[in-house]
Amino acid sequence: MRIVYLHACEIPSVYANGVHVMRMCDAFADAGHEITLYAGTGSTSADDIHAYYGNRNRFPVRIFGTPRIPVLGRWIRAWRIRRDVRRSGAVDLVYGRDLYALLASAGLAPLVYETHLLRPGRGQRLVERVLFRLPGLRRVVTVTHALAEDYRRTVPRLRRRGGPEVVAVSDCADLPPDTGPAATLPGRPDALKVGYVGHLYPGRGIDVVLALAGSLPDADFHLVGGTDEDLAHWRSRPRTPNVYFHGHQPPARLHPYYRAFDLVLAPYQQRVAVAGGMGDISRWISPMKLFEYMAHGKTIIASDLPVLREVLTDGVNCLLCPPDDLAAWTAAVKHLAGAPEERAALGATAERQLRSDYTWRARVDRVLPNLDSAPGLGSG
């Protein structure tokens, strides 16, 4: 199929949404589809976007900035994208997370809308409701069952027969290369290396990681990721000498860090902010880093949140701890530090589950609708 993927945010960027979109486009290409990505102007410099993300396929990336016009800017960009898609030739499917460009593209091809949270703004919710009423919208894809349930609960159209199908498909990860170097990390060569990969804004549990480092002086703690602003904030705070901030790394350069860690942390809190430190997505979060941890066979200690239990099982593929119970986190790290065989077993189970259920390539097959029975398209 010829597919266009519509993304409202920047490519390239330091944010996880860019990684998600690029991994999906790469997987669409792996599946034999002709994919073109439409995205916003990048907030991070990169001479080669595909090399920055570590893509296997060099699919076209079309960049459209949003004019700085209140309210109208998004619509102007959306209609420019529609015009460009029409000029490029016939399309079999329009897929994406860009609410405005998806609505503007009605009538060009069947639509699939992917969403990772309930839209917070009244204007966005109104646009979304219009999108849900289009006959050409085939599917609504969510990243967790909790989010799918909330959409069905709050949007009657999604509960009715004949409305778009709601499909919950979690985030995923690519299998890493079989061989490769481990990162040379600062710190003590013989110390337990505890890793965290991801952003540093509120709700990610960075204060838990720093407190753990204070209570476990025999281990070294390595945090990979974060914007310049967030790094400056955490580096300015008092911390023990066994904490190392490595800053943002291009996605293509993360494999050596994962290989170097003995165990990894996902200390999400009861409230989890989105990019920029705003909002709360703790009920619906599907962290890509969890799946990347699993792909590398890492031993995971994660917060015991209902949404994470959609993927994680305590004592099977991870250890789970109450989000803000420092004593429980400390005990979990101490236990695993002295139990290398258990660490290996937990990591091996996680990797097997990733290979079986949570690769991007498998996700592509699950999100694509059956177009053979497509109803009439929206008016264009």
Rank of each mutant, 00 (worst) to 15 (best):
M1N: 11
V4P: 01
L6Q: 08
L6G: 04
S13P: 06
A16I: 13
R23T: 06
M24S: 14
D26I: 02
T36S: 14
T41Y: 03
T44H: 14
D47E: 15
N55K: 02
V61P: 09
P70Y: 12
R74C: 04
W75K: 12
I76C: 08
A78E: 06
G89W: 01
A90F: 01
A90S: 13
D92M: 10
Y95I: 13
A104H: 04
A106Y: 03
L108P: 05
T115K: 08
L117M: 12
P120T: 10
P120E: 08
R125C: 07
R129V: 10
V130D: 02
L134R: 14
P135D: 01
L137Q: 03
A148M: 03
D150S: 13
D150I: 07
D150M: 11
R152I: 09
T154P: 01
V155W: 12
P156H: 07
R157W: 03
L158H: 05
E165S: 02
S170E: 01
S170Q: 04
D171W: 00
P177T: 00
T179V: 15
T184C: 13
P186D: 07
V197E: 02
H199P: 07
H199R: 13
G205D: 07
D207R: 09
V208G: 00
G214W: 02
P217N: 04
H222C: 09
D230V: 08
L231E: 12
H233Q: 11
P238F: 06
P238A: 13
G247T: 03
P256E: 10
R259W: 08
F261E: 05
V264F: 08
A266W: 02
Y268L: 15
Q269K: 09
R271W: 06
A273D: 07
V274E: 14
V274R: 14
G276V: 01
M278L: 13
R283Q: 10
W284K: 03
I300M: 08
L308M: 12
R309T: 00
R309M: 01
V311C: 03
V311A: 05
G315E: 11
L320M: 14
P322M: 11
E342Q: 15
T349D: 07
Q353H: 08
R355P: 07
T359P: 03
A362C: 03
V364R: 01
N370W: 00
S379W: 10
